[in-house]
Design a protein around this nucleic acid. Structure first.
Length: 642
DNA sequence: GTAGGGTTAG
């Protein structure tokens, strides 16, 4: 065996030169390396690497190591790519050992690739060890580590590495910033980073911009996100997706849909991410018909799980469970989110038994429930008044599924006990909670007090709500009504004073209905709708007809008007009543009337909707901020508890 | 060789 000449070591072989080695006999397992020349050995190895023949390349590499033969960095990078593609962790480690085995320090380029390999194998410690040993680290070395930490949600470490990098005098590039932005979980850091980006002149990079848009919207700074978006001269489809996603996730569905139109106008077509966000916007706005239109485009991506989950949720939240079930049945894959969406969707829409059946099916299919799944299950129990089942699931969730009950789970049980009239037990549970009750917890109890007309406890619960959420106008109104009903005028004026002092005004009730893919909004006392006179006439006639079958407009609203619209002459014109009449006028006979509201539905409107549904033989679905009400044949799916 | 966007509750 001839000694290997220095020239041969780290011979630079470009991919275009691969053909040079094609004529060489491949290194068979029985080949005698002793008879092979160094160049033949190397040639075969290079060939195997570029052919992505991992087993043979690994064998050849072992032989080379025994003979002190080494290839060039580019060939090793091909081999590492091959290990990554095959998820061959052990082989990857051998390559690492091999390139360091001749006592030479490999090129920075190659070490960066090895670090990246460990990162992709989720072996962060190995990546870090390799990084620490490097005599020289360039921007790629630093960015690879920063990106790894950002992916692993180790935000502090990612930011720390940026600082260390700057201290070492390495200038971050657009890759560094788009990586580190993902690790940014505070506004102060974000503002600093944004300044840094502008300072080094990278603010026009599309990757950096889309990351900025994303982080600003995740930190609830939508205005800043929109600002970054508007300042852009060139936008690509990811930038569009970032802004549409940001808007949809921040409950600005209108603007998300608007930007989606602009995106199409700018010549970009929607991909899975775009459609997911558009569906989320439809979900928030309860736009069933627009959602159905989007569904047609979703069919192109029928194996995309996230997109299908968003579609499921859209149908559930728009109150069309038949569509949701049909999508669910056709899905190729279903994960815990698909099942949880169905369980919560069925429960919220009043199909508790079916929700629990889905939970059994989910377990049978081997999918493990998570925190949110159990919430849906408990919600289903509380909705159907299944006190024992609810308790069972609540008390066994830790043991069976390893999930600690959180505030929301307690909330479901408080609701369950409250619905069953067990108010004392509900209060006891609040005091026994392992986590601090919040405004939502107390509001849940307040809801139960409203249903069971427990004035003293309602006052107590309302005070607790206001301690934790002093801006909650609905609770002020409710408390003031309770005091008024008990002739406690001093307390009434105290509440009004507090409201004035804090600048809290009652939010006007608003209902939305979708007709011909257009949203029609009705606001209490608002006469802006072009057909308002016709609607008012229709409403008066309808009320007259309903009174004939026993409708008595309610006047006693204390403890009924939980966050609902005002109790006065305008009661007759509550926004959902206007929306129902408009629905009757505009939608074809027999089609469902679907309405979304910003406030809880009041007792009178609830009664009104039940009777209209019966008299007109219509399904009326009203989604308030908490619950869904399906009115059919004179009854509501909520069982008159909300 | 290093980078950006999407799903369940509240």
């Amino acid at each position: 065996m001839k000694a290997v000449s220095g020239k041969l070591k780290y011979l630079r072989t470009l991919p275009s030169s691969v053909s040079r080695f094609h004529s060489l006999t491949p290194l068979a397992s029985h080949a005698q390396p002793k008879n092979s020349s160094s160049s033949t050995l190397l040639g075969e190895f290079v060939n195997f690497c570029y052919q992505r023949d991992l087993p043979r390349a690994m064998k050849a590499m072992a032989v080379m190591e025994r003979h002190g033969v080494y290839a060039d960095s580019l060939t090793y990078s091909e081999l590492i790519k091959c290990c990554l593609a095959r998820n061959a962790v052990e082989q990857g480690k051998l390559v690492h050992k091999h390139v360091f085995s001749n006592g030479h320090q490999p090129k920075t380029f190659l070490v960066n690739i090895l670090i990246n390999m460990y990162v992709k194998f989720s072996l962060l410690e190995q990546a870090r060890a390799l990084f620490d040993q490097m005599p020289e680290r360039n921007v790629v070395s630093w960015t690879t580590m920063i990106s790894a930490y950002a992916n692993a949600k180790l935000s502090v470490r990612a930011l720390e590495f940026l600082v260390l990098m700057l201290r070492e005098g390495v200038l971050p590039n657009m890759y560094t910033f788009s990586s580190v932005l993902r690790a940014c979980d505070g506004l102060v850091n974000l503002r600093q980073l944004h300044c840094g980006i502008i300072k080094v002149g990278l603010e026009s990079d599309v990757f950096v911009r889309s990351a900025l848009i994303d982080v600003y919207s995740k930190l609830d700074k939508l205005k800043d996100a929109v600002c970054v978006f508007n300042e852009m001269e060139t936008r690509d489809y990811v930038v569009w997706n970032s802004i549409i996603g940001g808007l949809a996730q921040n409950s600005d569905g209108d603007e998300a849909l608007n930007q989606f139109k602009m995106m199409k106008r700018a010549g970009f077509s929607a991909d899975q991410s775009t459609l997911t966000s558009v569906l989320r916007a439809c979900t928030g706005l309860a736009l069933l018909e627009v959602g159905r239109q989007v569904h047609v485009h979703v069919l192109k991506f029928n194996v995309d799980l996230i997109l299908n989950n968003a579609l499921l949720d859209m149908y559930c939240k728009c109150g069309s469970l038949e569509d949701a079930k049909s999508v669910f049945e056709r899905m190729v894959d279903r994960d815990v989110i698909s099942w949880s969406t169905m369980i919560a969707g069925l429960a919220q829409n009043g199909y508790s038994r079916e929700a629990l059946k889905f939970f059994d099916l989910m377990k049978a299919s081997g999918v493990k429930p998570n925190y949110i799944t159990i919430l849906g299950v408990l919600f289903a129990c509380s909705h159907a008044g299944l006190v024992d089942d609810g308790w069972y699931y609540f008390q066994s969730m830790k043991r069976l599924y390893g999930i600690d009950p959180g505030r929301e789970h307690y909330g479901c049980i408080i609701d369950l006990l409250g619905r069953a009239g067990k108010l004392d037990e509900a209060v006891k549970l609040i005091h026994e909670m392992k986590c601090e009750p919040d405004a939502v917890t107390w509001r849940t109890l307040l809801g139960a007090c409203r249903v069971h007309r427990n004035v003293d406890l309602a006052i107590y619960a309302a005070k607790q709500v206001l301690k934790l959420d002093p801006e909650d106008s609905g609770t002020y109104v409710l408390l003031s009504n309770i005091y008024a009903n008990s002739q406690r005028w001093e307390d009434v004026s105290e509440i009004r004073r507090a409201m004035r002092h804090r600048g809290i005004a009652k939010e006007p009730g608003c209902s939305w209905i979708e007709v011909n893919k257009q949203i029609h909004a009705f606001i209490l006392g608002d006469t802006a709708h072009p057909k308002i006179n016709e609607i008012n006439r229709g409403l008066n006639q309808l009320i007259h007809k309903l009174m004939g079958i026993g409708y008595v407009p309610e006047t006693d609203f204390v403890l009924q008007d939980l966050e609902g619209e005002q109790r006065d002459d305008s009661l007759r014109y509550h926004s959902e009543k206007l929306a129902i009449v408009f629905g009757l006028m505009s939608l074809s006979t027999g089609s469902a009337i679907r309405i979304r509201k910003n406030l809880r539905i009041c007792g009178d409107c609830h009664n009104f909707a039940k009777l209209v549904a019966k008299m007109e033989c219509r399904l009326i679905v009203i989604r308030d901020p908490i619950r869904y009400h399906h009115f059919q044949n004179g009854v509501c799916s909520c069982g008159d508890y909300w």
